[in-house]
Structures are given as C-alpha cells and as structure tokens.
C-alpha cells in the first residue's frame, strides 16, 4: 500500500508545474538556448518572455508527458521557428537579389568567376584565432538573407532532420538544397573577405 502511495506522489511531482519558480529554474537555460539560435540578445529575451506567457496560458494543456523543462523548451522552439518565419517573410520583401543566379559562377559553363574563386584562408592555427574566426562566422551568418540563416542554423546548429525543416519552414526539398548550397557559398566568400 505504502509503495503505491509513493508512486502516486512521485507521479504528481513530475507533472506539477510551478510558474512562480520558472524564472529561477529555467530562465538562464532557455535564454542561452535562444541566443545561440537567434544570434541576438534582445530577441532572445523577448522570446523567453513570450515562452513563459504562452506556457502560463497553456497550463491546462500540459499533460505531464514530459518534464516541465522539456515542455518549456518545446514552447520556446516553436517561438524560435515563428521568429525565423516572420523574419524571412519580412526581409525577403526588401531583398530582391536573394535568387540572383550567379554571383559566384560564370553563366554558361559554371566555372568559378575570377572575383569569387576560393583562395586559401589566412591560417587558423590556435584556439584564440579559432575564436576570432568563429566571431566573424557568426557575423557572416547574420548578414545572410533571413531564410538562409534560418535554414543554415536549423541544419548546422540545431542539427534538425531535413524533413522537419522542410515542414516547419514550408519549403520544398529542391529549395532546401539550393539554400544549403547558396548559404555555404555565401558564408565562405564572406569569410574569405573578412578573415584577414
């Protein structure tokens, strides 16, 4: 009998939500999770706040199938995807050359053009240089069209499944591979230009 009781207690402990403790328990973790993905301090804070507010509203939907933390992360993930979608919708209006076919290759034969042909990067040989390189890499990711940086981040930083990205960002598989290709060409060129 007492064993049964313990189990019940444990189960309810698992599903109890304690919003008053959310900031204390999860704010730093969720904030860091968001910052890595949106690459912007203010936006990360906004998304964090929205996550807690949405969670409060959705408390009755919480089924206790996951931990409180996992549940909050799932909500935050949705917020981040929404942010990606909105950003790419807004910015693609102003960026008309997103599809400029060939800034890297000659039109007819597909050779590298003189201007964008890869040359050796300056060396990256120690930890400090790597960190500086990573900093420029981050800036280059930020400079890309929003949809590209969203897809790049989802694939390379979040390491999400391709199908998930297609579904969430509502793009075709062909489009996905074009973006993966273009964004890497773009990043590499940006690094060549700025890593000196």
């Amino acid at each position: 009998m007492s064993v049964n009781q313990n189990q019940v207690v444990k189960e309810t402990e698992n599903i109890i939500l304690a919003p008053a403790e959310w900031v204390n328990n999860y704010a730093d973790f969720l904030y860091k999770y968001a910052v890595v993905r949106v690459n912007d301090d203010e936006i990360a804070k906004d998304l964090l706040q929205e996550t807690f507010f949405s969670a409060l509203k959705g408390i009755s939907n919480f089924k206790g199938e996951s931990s409180e933390r996992t549940w909050l992360v799932a909500i935050l993930k949705h917020k981040i995807i929404d942010h990606y979608r909105n950003a790419s919708r807004m910015r693609s209006k102003s960026i008309t050359n997103e599809s400029t076919e060939d800034e890297f290759f000659e039109k007819g034969n597909g050779h590298w053009n003189r201007e964008n042909r890869p040359t050796e990067f300056s060396s990256v040989s120690n930890e400090l240089q790597e960190k500086e390189f990573a900093l420029i890499l981050k800036k280059c990711i930020k400079k890309m069209p929003a949809l590209w940086s969203a897809v790049f981040t989802l694939k390379h930083i979040d390491e999400e499944e391709t199908d998930y990205i297609l579904q969430e960002m509502k793009i075709s598989s062909a489009n996905f591979w074009v973006i993966i290709h273009r964004s890497k060409l773009n990043l590499r060129a940006c690094l060549q230009k700025n890593w000196l």
Binding site: V23, K32, V35, F133, A134, L137, H156, I157
Partner: peptide, 28 residues
C-alpha cells in the same frame, strides 16, 4: 568551426542580469 564554437557556445554565454529576471518574475 560551427560545431565546435557555435553549437557548444551556450556554455559561454553570460547569464541574464538579475534586474531582467526580477522584472520577468514579477510579470509572471
């Protein structure tokens, strides 16, 4: 470099400042 420095970077990001946290806790 993305894997090494961007994915694992979360551990190096500073925590939120207390003022922001108190404010957020109050709103909740």
């Amino acid at each position: 470099m993305v894997k090494k420095h961007l994915v694992k970077e979360a551990s190096q990001i500073g925590s939120l400042d207390n003022h922001f946290k108190e404010d957020l806790a109050n709103k909740i």
